[in-house]
Structures are given as structure tokens and as C-alpha cells.
Design a protein around this nucleic acid. Structure first.
Length: 152
DNA sequence: GCCAACGTTGGC
DNA sequence: GCCAACGTTGGC
């Protein structure tokens, strides 16, 4: 079982939005970065645990946990001309982009802020806290996961 | 809203 | 295949 971190702007889709979905489950679409896609497509498996990270907001940070509940599958929003995620280079035969279903598991009582994550020595080599990192889907080592959970 | 960092595109 | 131009991310 692997661990991940996935970012979303809470104004677009927050952890509360996920929790409010039917069965607290929704598909995570709109990933349009190859490195992030490769992680999803090639390595994500049902049962994997995922940190939900709120980006581009007042207090950016990790706000809770969700779980992968599907195999990766083609992101159909890439094929929809009306979607903001439309990609003319994607096709049914070659979907190019992938999505996965995620189920809400837990919302932390307080956000674990980016600031506090940066101050934690144990997380100094976590990709998230490294300068200029823009990956929206990234793997999290188990010892990093445990260190974050220890900050609750 | 600014802007640094980074990814992608496309001309050559 | 290089790299300048452009677009996006995301902290601040």
C-alpha cells in the first residue's frame, strides 16, 4: 500500500466537497501534468492512502486523508470540448490523461500548514516542501507519512 | 495581484 | 534537439 499527496484549490474542490459527495467518493480529474499522470496511471492502487492538500488559499496545508478506491482509468473530461480540462490531443484510443476515484476518510481537526511542514526536520526531503515544486500528485514515503500524522 | 519557478510548445 | 516564448502554479 502506497502513500500519496494530492493538491486541490479549496475554492475549486475542497475536502468538504469530497466528503459531501455521494458515498464521500468522487473522481479526481483534471490532472494535466505528465509526471503526476504517470504516478496515477502506473502506480496508484485501490487501498492507497492519500493526503488531501489545500493549495492557493489562506492557509495552504494538509487537511485530511482519502483513499484510492478504483483502478486508474481514462479521464473523460479530456474528451469533452465543453470541459475546462479538454485536450484536443486526447482520444478514446489514446486517452492521454487519467483519473482515479477517491473516498474521503478523515478531516484533521486543524490544517497541518505548509509552514509547519517546512519547520519539521523529518520532512525536509518531502517533495512538497522543496522550493518551486508544482507537482499536484506526488508520492509520500512511509516515514514522511508517519511524521505528518505525528503532527496532529 | 505579484512574480519566481517550472512545464510545454513550436519555430528553426 | 535547442531554446525562447508563453502559460500555469501556488506561495506570499
Amino acid at each position: 500500500m502506497a502513500h500519496w499527496l494530492m493538491k486541490s484549490e479549496p475554492e475549486a474542490f475542497s475536502i468538504d466537497d469530497l466528503k459531501a459527495c455521494p458515498n464521500s467518493t468522487d473522481f479526481w480529474d483534471g490532472v494535466r501534468n505528465y509526471q503526476a499522470r504517470n504516478f496515477m496511471r502506473d502506480q496508484m492502487k485501490p487501498g492507497d492512502q492519500v493526503f488531501f492538500y489545500h493549495s492557493n488559499c489562506k492557509v495552504p496545508g494538509i487537511v485530511g486523508v482519502m483513499e484510492v478506491v478504483s483502478e486508474p482509468y481514462a479521464d473523460i473530461t479530456a474528451l469533452d470540448p465543453d470541459s475546462k480540462y479538454y485536450d484536443p490531443k486526447a482520444s478514446k484510443e489514446n486517452p492521454r490523461w487519467f483519473a482515479v476515484d477517491l473516498q474521503f476518510k478523515e478531516k484533521f481537526p486543524d490544517v497541518i500548514s505548509l509552514e509547519s511542514l517546512k519547520q519539521n526536520e523529518a520532512l525536509s526531503d518531502l517533495a512538497l516542501v522543496r522550493k518551486g515544486n508544482r507537482l499536484s500528485v506526488m508520492p509520500v514515503e512511509t516515514h514522511h507519512w508517519d511524521a505528518v500524522m505525528g503532527m496532529l
